[in-house]
Design a protein around this nucleic acid. Structure first.
Length: 416
RNA sequence: GCGGGCGUAGCUCAGGUGGUUAGAGCGCCAGAUUGUGGCUCUGGAGGCCGUGGGUUCAAGUCCCAUCGUUCGCCCCA
């Protein structure tokens, strides 16, 4: 038997329906905030991500799926690992900056990583990007929308964590403070954090290594390096969230692995999924546009939600009422198939789902009808075919009546 | 990229210290019930024990490799 590609999963039945439901509800819910769907390609130039994510990011160093290049020798094609950079690329080439545009996207992303619970090599994101507005209310509304969407899906057990990275000046100042602090106590750091000190000092703050914890506790806070402008911006957001009754935790240690973030960053986490507890994460990324060649920064904020993680949370409690089961139609022998097919087509025109059972013997067909979840069996044997009638059997009570096709339509309508 | 657990029937899993023909439950098939499912009874099919190599008179069992899976590290929207 051929294995599936590592880190990919087949979905069928209720899981597939739930996956699709999440993607559909995303489009419906987010359009209520004026977000319009944008569909960008799964294939992009590697350059797009190398420029935007920073070449120290793990995503670039070891997690990209690269495709064998055919024509363009010096440019590599990759499967997209995230959605923000492609949306910004599309915005810059098809829209007129700094016009405010709001996009939502949904689709598969790819990262070559070791699979575990809630982490696959092909996974789906639902994401939003609001590009062209630096108003604090853009952040507030975007965050409220994220929480609202999870609630809309029936998820309530999560926590909103929030922090600010400040503007470039704040972040630069803080990085210096932090590097000098950690350099002073370098010998006490874990090996990983020593490495981070050189490449991505902010990341030390969310190290899980036990030996790092006391040093992190004592570390200077980013808050103390903020410029007045950055401080005011963040204060507007936190005070407004409080006013709106949205609970949040100001996590001073929350940082980002990607270079393009500034000001507000946030994560929505759960403790129900083990190590991969981030359901949704995002932030402001005013610098991204310039990395892609814009002459000035373009204010932007977005988030992305892990569809599989959300699905795992919903799976136990979700009731699949989206698709009513198809009614089973049983031709008793081959001579009745044509009459059965005609009836099926008639009923389908009335909007009913009909599945004609062709395989197996008669008793197997009845068994199959039950296991498919059909509440009734529609039966056509030689007698029914000759008299142009249908026998309708209620599979829970066992009652059976013979009636005309017109009466079947009425019968099914009262059932539904 | 690093570490631990697990791969046996369609599914869920048993198979002390190696030992003849590898088991159970559920499901499936047949019959009791030749146009009718569920309950019951009787019978049956179904296994390169993930794959490759090694040790041994003998390997599902021990060793090595590999693939897959799972949990964690790392990383991440």
């Amino acid at each position: 038997m051929l294995n599936q590609v590592r880190g990919t999963h087949d979905l069928w039945g209720d899981s597939a329906d739930l996956h699709t439901t999440i993607l559909e509800q995303a489009q419906i819910y987010l359009s209520g905030f004026g977000y319009k769907e944008i569909i960008t390609p799964i294939l992009e130039w590697e350059d797009l991500f190398e420029r935007t994510l920073g070449n120290t990011a793990d995503i670039i160093r070891k997690e990209l799926f690269r495709l064998v290049s055919r024509g363009d020798k010096d440019k590599e094609v990759v499967l997209r690992p995230e959605g923000t950079a492609p949306v910004m690329r599309a915005y810059l080439s098809h829209f007129m900056p700094p016009q405010h545009e709001k996009f939502m996207y949904r689709g598969p992303m790819f990262r070559y990583d070791r699979p575990q619970k809630g982490r696959q090599r092909q996974f789906y994101h639902v994401g939003v990007e609001s590009i062209g507005s630096d108003h604090p209310w853009t952040e507030i509304e975007t965050i409220a929308m994220a929480l609202g969407f999870l609630n809309h899906l029936g998820i309530h057990d999560f926590q909103l964590e929030l922090n600010t990275l400040g503007d470039e000046e704040s972040r630069h100042a803080y990085t210096n403070v932090l590097v000098s602090y950690f350099s002073g106590c370098q010998s006490g750091l874990s090996a990983e954090s020593k490495h981070r000190l050189l490449h991505n000092p902010l990341r030390i703050l969310d190290s899980k290594a036990p030996e790092d914890q006391p040093l992190i506790q004592q570390a200077p806070l980013l808050q103390d390096s903020l410029t007045d402008v950055a401080r005011d911006h963040f204060h507007t957001i936190t005070s407004t969230l409080s006013e709106l009754g949205i609970p949040y935790v100001h996590n001073h240690k929350l940082v980002r692995g990607l270079d393009y973030y500034s000001h507000t960053i946030f994560e929505i986490t759960t403790d129900k999924l083990g190590a991969q507890g981030t359901l949704l994460a995002g932030g402001r990324y005013d610098k991204l546009a310039m990395l892609l060649g814009a002459k000035k920064p373009i204010p932007a904020i977005g988030w992305a939600m892990g569809v599989e993680r959300v699905r795992l949370l919903m799976e136990s409690s979700w009731k699949n009422n989206a698709s009513t089961p198809a009614y089973a139609l049983i031709p008793l022998d081959d001579s009745c198939i044509k009459a059965s097919f005609d009836l099926a087509q008639t009923l389908r025109k009335e909007g009913f789902s009909i599945t004609m059972l062709l395989e197996g013997k008669v008793n197997q067909k009845f068994k199959r009808a039950v296991s498919l979840g059909s509440p009734i069996a529609l039966i056509i044997g030689p007698d029914e075919a000759a008299s142009q009638t249908v026998s309708v059997k209620d599979l829970s009570s066992g009652e059976q009546k013979t009636m005309s096709p017109q009466d079947v339509i009425e019968h099914l309508q009262t059932q539904a």
